[in-house]
Amino acid sequence: MAAQSATASCSGLRSALPLLAPAYLWLTVAIFLPLSAMVFFSFMTDLPLTGKPWAFTLGNYAAFFSQSLYLTLLLASLRLGLEVTLWCIVIGYPAAYVLAKVLKGRSREAIFLLVILPFWSNGLVRIFSWAMVLREGGILDTALNAVLPFKINIDLMYSYPAVIIGLVHSYVPYMVLTCYLTLQAIDDSLIEAGRSLGASRLQVLKRVIIPLSMPGLVAGAALIFVPVVGSFMEPRILGGRTGTFYGTVIEDQFVAVFNWPLGAALSFILLAVVLVILALASPVLRRAA
């Protein structure tokens, strides 16, 4: 029986090979080769491109452990990733639910478009528009002061909340999309069946809808958490001096300090940490799903 299924999957693989080949070719060229080059760099004292003499070293990795700053920044970035992911769930899941289960027809299309609009706008444009909204005397400040009877001073610019707002805005569409897809696939009759069995709306949500949409939540969380931990654009522009995170330090190594080997080493440490976190989380999430 086992042998039979093994041969079956084997022949399935063989027939799938022509279909998979383009994807693997692309992955090799676009990801594997540059990544191997980076692995190589991360063990060097200096870039060979500069013409200076270079040698192999573990020093770049050692740097991470010898300076507590890197660990502090990594933890700050992980916390940022966690917070942004949570906010994306809090905002994105209800939106996805309303889109998938409450709205019908044209209004659904219109709202859907609004939700995924940030996807289509340029990242820098997006961030600078937030800067205009959040700064003192900016749109939010002016608008609130026009409406409220008392004077308040809103200057969120260059603060941690500004970074969170910018990142959540950039990444919430992922959560909406992945959750929308799984929620959409849940038959309305399951909800009605739950209600007819005496469950309140909240109980149906807890026992039927959330478990069934867990794959979408998990996929969305992974899609958001990983890039946010390494993000640098939003922290730099919206966070200003408070916006120093692990991602901005890596970016500095590449664009400002030109210490590519250190930047590469820091990136791989981040990759390893993220992979470990996902690996640790996956059994828990799989059980929940």
């Binding site: 038959d187 009759s189 399951l190 009605e192 069946a193 739950g194 039927v208 069934l212």
Partner: peptide, 10 residues
């Protein structure tokens, strides 16, 4: 108690 055409089992 309701039985649906498509059974609607969870």
């Amino acid at each position: 108690g309701m039985v649906f055409q498509n059974y609607a089992l969870f």
